[in-house]
Design a protein around this nucleic acid. Structure first.
Length: 860
RNA sequence: GCGGGUGUGGCGGAAUGGUAGACGCACCGGACUUAAAAUCCGUUGGGCCCUAGGCCCGUGGGGGUUCAACUCCCCCCACCCGCACCA
């Protein structure tokens, strides 16, 4: 009892104990059921569906998740306060390669690894205080989910949206395994190091190309999508108008058909090039060893378009010739590694003067470069190493001479049709969606292959993955399984084989947003629920998904609409794409990457390891495990609290840009949370006064700031300018710092300000907002259940304005005048204010923009 | 290679074609303290002039349109995202 309390320690302790408060407020929200929604709500509250891209359960949340889910949570909490009935669910994109890799390395099975990761990450997300309806949670690897997905696939099949086609995969000839593109490094298998081959397999496809026109046109119905995302999708779908032209092989009745968008340049032909997989190339390879060798070389380039296009342009002269239908001349046929079999007809005609790639190819193999396009009508320009790929005028081209490229296209097509050598066609870059994966940890494709009946639908869903699989040899464990694939045909009863491929995981993420509306329905969707909740009003995720995931989901939704599973065509009415989270990277003297916690930074800007070895501070890069420049959100939340972590990821820059995580920034956020609570305690302890009749001076100014803050924060939240909302929060809080006043009007205004501030910031820092509210109004309800503050219009109108006075556009003075003052009066004031600068100058012109600027154009 | 984006103080960034640098971080100075931390107050784009005060330069680089350009147009550079089997 004689112990003296350590006063130093006590005064050092933060007043706001986030570690105790945050879980307590989370429990209070849960108990009040603030965030649960009904599948089919009664009543007439408007609905708002907020969704963030669900995470892959890698084991721990990362800063990208913290940012993504905080952004979505701000929207969800804000919309709730605005009176919307909000649906804000969370789940797990749980199938995929990492679980199989973990199974191989650690001898665990993918399911238990995945579910353990989910359990851990669920805890971390809950600690963030997100306003999620956890009752809707599911993982895509739950049989309850993927069984419904199998049903959808069978419905698509019946509806004619599924087909079986040949397509190429990356084949590792040593491990006898199909490789993902990311497992191919510099053309070699990541584990075996063997040169990867292109191998053709029979696979399942969804006919996304049937919807190409709709997917393109539908972009016009998405005003709340970023323009750049729509542009990327438009280019990806790649509608082009051109012509198919058939070139007769010299001395044969056979021909090669090319697709071209430049029929106007047919007279500029220099060669014809075909893809290595083109039938003509293949048949040549059968009798020509050199051709076969070249084709094999091309096949070692891998399947990714980037790899093919960045590879050195190479060709093989087949010795064959084709005849140009316009001028009857003969041109050589080459096999070229940059011609894609998947695009157009797998063959092009080469016009070097009008296409850079063709020109590079012609220069490399010394092929002629006939000039047929000119920027000026009638002139024939010199072509160096730069092709004239823009619009212009046609020269040296017979009947096309003198026409613009646009006119010539139409004329050339008309002629082709007239002579029966070609026709006008619309071509799409978009290819059908190959959905077969030769892997275990995915949704089994519910098909049985019968020699008599062909492929037949599995009748007993869900078709569940077998658990007794081994990962001790390469390849697909489903295929290795001793019994799983051997079944009887559901139609004829004869012995048959199960499909051992699983679905592309992009399918899992193409309808989860629909399943969230009724996650426990016995059918894929509950129509009443999807009708009520879809489309998603605000979708939030990374820009890296701008094309594939979002396009697949748009297609899948249309296909589900056709098969009666949903009632809308577009899944996401609003889209926001966030930037990445970055951090400085560090290397030691031996060039090894170091984690931030291994690095000590010094005042002089240098850095060392804990034991004093020098550290090179590298570039700021996207947080990634390989560069070790990651910061664990769990550690950050433990040190600074969930609110501080949320505040920091919102504060430092606009959400669509990359954000750099910095220790000092996190500390700053922590201090703000503390300051806010301290302010509330200070103000709560001030005398409570009745609302005065009038406000003047400082009190009026504070009230004006408070009510303008309502407008500015509201606008910032509506437009995703969360960093601006944060700045306004700092501004209003800053106005409340300092000694407590005695003026009753100011006391009243301060109490009003801190209460409104808490509500304005609650979407961003919900825990401390509750704490502030509780200390100001003990016993009052939760902020999470309050409506959004409303500004008093009388306090938000500006009565004075500061106008810039410029000479020749350069600022010379500012004047503060009543809003709406007359031009005459304001110009007179401006002349007086800038009298010094105007001395000896003649005013040539006055530019007057009311309430903004006065610019005197002057001459000496 | 192709498609899409980004670039503003020491740092993150703000700015309907109209006062560039709001707000924050960091730094520096002051108050409080035996001291430190925390907190509070204040300074801070660069250069120049003799103070008051004023002048010049300045939004990746170069050109252009305009009374006025971070903002619009053209060319270039650097970095980032995507490229169909990573999610």
């Amino acid at each position: 009892m004689t112990e003296t309390p350590d006063r130093t320690q006590e005064s050092n302790a933060p007043k706001y104990d986030f570690a105790a408060a945050e879980p307590a407020w989370q429990a209070a929200w849960e108990q009040a059921g603030c965030f649960t929604a009904l599948d089919v709500p009664a009543g007439d509250k408007p609905k708002y569906y907020v969704l963030e891209m669900f995470p892959y359960p890698s084991g721990k949340i990362h800063m990208g998740h913290v940012r993504n889910y905080t952004l979505g949570d701000v929207v969800a909490r804000y919309k709730r306060a605005r009176g919307f009935d909000v649906l804000h669910p969370m789940g797990w994109d749980a199938f995929g390669l990492p679980a199989e890799n973990a199974a191989r390395q650690r001898k665990t099975d993918p399911a238990s690894w995945t579910y353990a990761n989910i359990a851990n990450m669920r805890g971390e997300l809950k600690r963030m205080g997100l306003s999620l309806d956890w009752s809707r949670e599911f993982a895509t690897c739950d049989p309850e989910y993927y069984g419904q997905q199998q049903q959808i696939f069978l419905d698509f099949w019946k509806a004619g949206l599924v087909e079986r086609k040949q397509s190429a995969v990356n084949w590792d000839p040593v491990d006898n395994t199909v490789l993902a593109n990311e497992q191919v490094i510099d053309g070699r298998g990541w584990l075996s190091g063997a040169l990867v081959e292109r191998k053709i397999l029979s696979q399942w496809f969804l006919k996304i190309t049937d919807y190409a026109p709709e997917l393109l046109a539908g972009l016009n119905d998405l005003p709340r999508w970023p323009e750049r995302v729509k542009l990327m999708q438009e280019n990806w779908i790649g509608r082009s108008e051109g012509a198919e032209v058939t070139f007769k092989l010299a001395g044969s009745d056979d021909g090669i058909t090319v697709y071209t968008t430049r029929p106007d340049t047919l007279f500029g032909m220099s060669f014809l090039a075909i893809a290595p997989e083109h039938p003509v190339a293949k048949s040549l390879a059968e009798r020509n060893a050199e051709a076969a060798a070249f084709i094999a070389e091309c096949a070692s380039q891998g399947t990714s378009e980037a790899a093919i296009e960045t590879a050195e342009k190479k060709g093989f002269d087949t010795g064959l010739f084709v005849v140009n239908p316009f001028n009857g001349e003969k041109f050589p046929v080459w096999i070229a590694n940059f011609v894609l079999m998947e695009y157009g007809t797998g063959a092009i005609f080469g016009c070097p003067c009008g296409d850079q790639r063709d020109l590079d190819f012609a220069r490399k193999y010394n092929l002629p470069v006939p000039v047929v396009v000119s920027p000026k009508a009638g002139e024939v320009p010199e072509i160096g190493n730069k092709a004239l790929d823009g619009d212009g005028f046609i020269v040296n081209s017979g009947f096309l001479d003198g026409m613009s490229t646009k006119e010539a296209k139409a004329a050339a097509i008309a002629k082709l049709e007239e002579i029966g050598a070609g026709k006008s066609v619309v071509n799409w870059r978009l290819r059908d969606w190959g959905i077969s994966r030769q892997r275990y940890w995915g949704c089994p494709i519910p098909v049985i292959h019968c020699e008599v009946c062909g492929p037949v639908a599995e009748t007993n869903l869900p078709l569940v993955l077998p658990k007794d699989v081994t990962f001790d040899k390469p390849g697909n464990p489903l295929d290795h399984h001793p019994t799983w694939k051997h079944v009887n045909c559901p139609q004829c009863g004869k012995a048959a084989t199960r499909e051992t491929d699983t679905f592309d995981t992009f399918i899992d993420s193409s309808w989860y947003f629909a399943r969230f509306t009724a996650p426990h329905a016995k059918t894929p969707t509950n129509l009443s629920a999807v009708k009520h909740w879809l489309p998603v009003d605000q979708y939030v995720g990374g820009i890296e998904h701008a094309i594939l995931h979002l396009l697949y989901a748009r297609f899948f939704t249309r296909a589900m609409q056709k098969t009666g599973h949903v009632s809308v065509a577009e899944p996401f009415a609003g889209l926001f794409t966030q930037g990445m989270v970055t951090h400085e990277s560090y290397k030691d003297a031996d060039g090894n990457w170091l984690y931030p916690e291994e690095v000590t930074k010094h005042a002089d800007g240098t850095a060392t390891t804990a034991d004093g070895r020098p550290v090179t501070v590298g570039r700021i890069e996207k947080m990634s495990k390989s560069k070790r420049n990651t910061v664990d959100p769990g550690v950050i939340i433990e040190r600074f609290g969930a609110d501080a972590a949320r505040w920091f990821v919102l504060s430092d820059n606009p959400p669509e840009r990359d954000v750099e995580w910095t220790e000092t920034g996190a500390q700053g956020a922590f201090r703000f949370v503390q300051r806010l609570y301290r302010l509330a305690e200070t103000i709560a302890a001030e005398p409570k006064v009745a609302k005065p009749e009038t406000f003047s001076g400082e009190a009026k100014k504070l009230r004006q700031l408070t009510h303008r803050s309502i407008l500015t924060v509201t606008e910032a939240l509506e437009t995703f300018a969360f960093n601006v909302a944060v700045a306004r929060g700092y501004e209003l809080a800053g106005a409340l710092v300092g000694e407590s006043p005695t003026d009753p009007a100011l006391l009243w205004a301060r109490r009003e300000a801190i209460g409104i501030l808490a509500r304005l910031l609650a979407p961003m820092i919900p825990h401390v907002a509750e704490a502030v509210n509780a200390v100001l109004n003990p016993g009052a309800g939760l902020v999470a259940e309050q409506t959004w503050p409303e500004a008093d219009p009388a306090l938000t109108v500006k009565d004075e304005v500061t106008i810039a006075v410029q000479l020749n556009g350069k600022l010379k003075a500012t004047i503060t005048v009543p809003v709406g003052g007359s031009q005459e009066a304001n110009v007179a004031i401006a002349k007086a204010a800038a009298a010094g600068a105007l001395k000896g100058q003649t005013i040539v012109k006055e530019i007057y923009v009311a309430d903004r600027i006065i610019n005197f154009v002057v001459k000496p």
